[in-house]
Design a protein around this nucleic acid. Sequence first.
RNA 1: GUGGGUGUAGCUCAACUGGUUAGAGUGCCGGGUUGUGGCCCCGGAGGUUGAGGGUUCAAGUCCCUUCACUCACCCCA
Length: 436
Amino acid sequence: MAQVTSIRGFKDIVPDEVGKWHYVEAGARSVFSLFGIREIRIPILEKTELFVRGIGETTDIVEKEMYTFKDRGEDLLTLRPEATASVLRAFIEHHLYETDPLVKLFTIGPMFRRERPQKGRFRQFHQINVEYIGQDDPRIDAELIFMLMYLLQSLGLESLNLEINSLGCAQCRKPYRPELVAYLRNHDGELCQDCLRRLETNPLRIFDCKAESCQKILVDAPVMLDTLCHSCRHHFDTVQQYLGELSIHFTLNTRMVRGLDYYTKTAFEVTAQSLGAQNAVTGGGRYDGLLKLLGGPDMPGVGFAIGVERLISMIPRSNEDFIEHPDIFIAALGARAQGYAFLLAQALRRAGIKTEMDYSPRSLKGLMKRSDRLHCRYTLMVGDDELDAKNASLRNMATKEQAALHLSSVEEDARSLASMINGNNRKPADASGEKG
RNA sequence: GUGGGUGUAGCUCAACUGGUUAGAGUGCCGGGUUGUGGCCCCGGAGGUUGAGGGUUCAAGUCCCUUCACUCACCCCA
């Protein structure tokens, strides 16, 4: 039979890799709790309209990357390509703005975009998403960025570049856009094919173009930052001031634009060379008009998304560092001993001891070898003889020391093994403290 | 969607210009005297060489088609 394989761009996360995922998720959750950011869980499927309105009709995501299909009725549904639109939809739907002036939310989960896979880019990928909704004080932007950098640093990531920019508000953008378009029109002979197209759809993104000819033109192009209105200017200055006081190093990238239409004012990205062409670990920014656009109250918000696969690829530790090892392996020889081992294993697990055993009749050597391969801390050796003599031996795999264990009942044996193992588990300071 | 690169054992890779039964390391299973792991030694299992077709006395190797993976463009986390 021909085997069925996974879908292109959809990856399995195998057991050896899962440890890093737990590490990242646990690290994120612990930082979020310090900042009072609460979890929200939202559906993977939404009405297509949510993303069309939220992300923008002319964006690449909406135009050609979404997994959209017709439900049995009429509704067009889409597998979410990002989380912000859904989080805001839920925020509005549950009137969360009535609960607190500033609502801080995070969510972790898979996103879907039908792009050609490459390094750091998959069709199903995962994001850690944070949104601060309700207020637009520049200190909120600064805190969000501070929190993000603190999280990345606490996960052990190095050589990251934080870039920030301001995209202005609707008012100050209005005069800027025609100015930029006019400038580019004067040079349209030198623009690449893609940029000629962008000139019509979303001229801001020409700044992202990698073609040298285009970059040359952009050197003298008018920059958004120079045309910010008074309040946007002040907002951005304050963000930078506080980042400075928090010792967050950043570079001002006046040419950074984000790919989603909803961003306003503060925009930021964290990139890393080692990621290859898809070098952004994180991106985010402010989106002050988005809630209203989605039919909610006219409230400001700011947030970011971390690409979990990209983040994980940068963690400077091996998968093995995160693999959990069993406390004890029960090496049973003989049919009766195996029966005893089976019951003892369940009792030990109930007592909180990570326990392994083997269900096939193997030699003691084979059992020891398996215990070793699993990196068990102890091996309990018990054969039919020991069972009769009520005496098994417990081997410390690291020190090779063996101690005799008097057997009575399964429950009793589990209890004494558990206390022996937990006893040796204790740190010296703890142990001395409890001895008295 | 467009280009480049690569598909051989579970994993990492060999196999001169086409030439016997496609190899090695690692992992897995077993053994090295009776019941003690890591090191060493020996043995074993495991491949339709991604798939399909073609050229040839002969194809892992050459040609065509197709699929997958991968990197880049594009785009973004």
